[in-house]
């Protein structure tokens, strides 16, 4: 579609009406801000923003309703993380087993470098265990770089409990019901 530009009238060519209009608008805004108190900004450290419920802040690890670590160190978040902020050390063959039945493993160490994190939420999206969530913290500050590398304990403490379907527990219960299983090996 071609829209032909309408030629300007002489009055418009003078620019004066447009200038007056601009002055009027800016004056109105200045007046409202100054005397009617209609400013749109907040004074941040004193006034805090009410974070919307689906806000994506810093990623933290969560526990299930039994207080067990949900993460099984599948390292998909480490793989998908665009800025490579996540570093997971898997338990290894002799490592600590998971703190709940059937899950077999959990991370020995789980570190998120909050300086690198870009809050994209890919870790949350990719997590097959619903173990990592972008929660509401948006102002992560610290005194040193090292302080902002959050380890497993810190992430779990900050993440809190997030109830969900307990896949591994369910499997363990299902297997228990099949105790008359005919295999003897």
């Amino acid at each position: 579609m071609i829209v032909n530009r309408r030629p300007l009238t002489f009055w418009e060519k003078l620019y004066l009406p447009a200038i007056m209009g601009g002055l009027k608008v800016t004056m109105r805004h200045a007046w409202r801000t100054l005397f009617a108190g209609k400013k749109v900004t907040m004074e941040y450290p004193e006034q805090k923003w009410a974070v919307p419920p689906d806000y994506r802040g810093a990623p933290y690890l969560v526990r299930d309703q039994d207080g067990s670590t949900k993460c099984v160190s599948c390292q998909l978040c480490e793989f998908v993380c665009p800025p490579k902020a996540i570093k997971i050390i898997p338990p290894g063959p002799a490592g600590q087993i998971a703190d709940r039945a059937n899950a077999e493993k959990m991370p020995r160490e789980f570190e998120i470098n909050m300086l690198r994190c870009i809050y994209c939420g890919m870790c949350q999206e990719v997590c097959p265990e619903e173990a990592i969530f972008l929660l509401k913290d948006y102002s992560i500050t610290g005194q040193s770089r090292q302080e902002l590398v959050f380890n497993k304990e810190k992430l779990l403490a900050l993440g809190g409990v997030h109830p969900g379907i307990q896949k591994w527990k369910h499997k363990a219960e299902e297997a228990k019901e099949q105790e008359n299983f005919p295999v003897k090996v």
Binding site: T26, H29, A30, R32, T33, L34, K38, K39, V40, T41, E43
Partner: peptide
């Protein structure tokens, strides 16, 4: 300050 008022802000304070 004036720019802040015109833009519905507070300005340096």
């Amino acid at each position: 300050k004036i720019s802040a008022w015109i833009q519905d802000r507070v300005g340096p304070n």
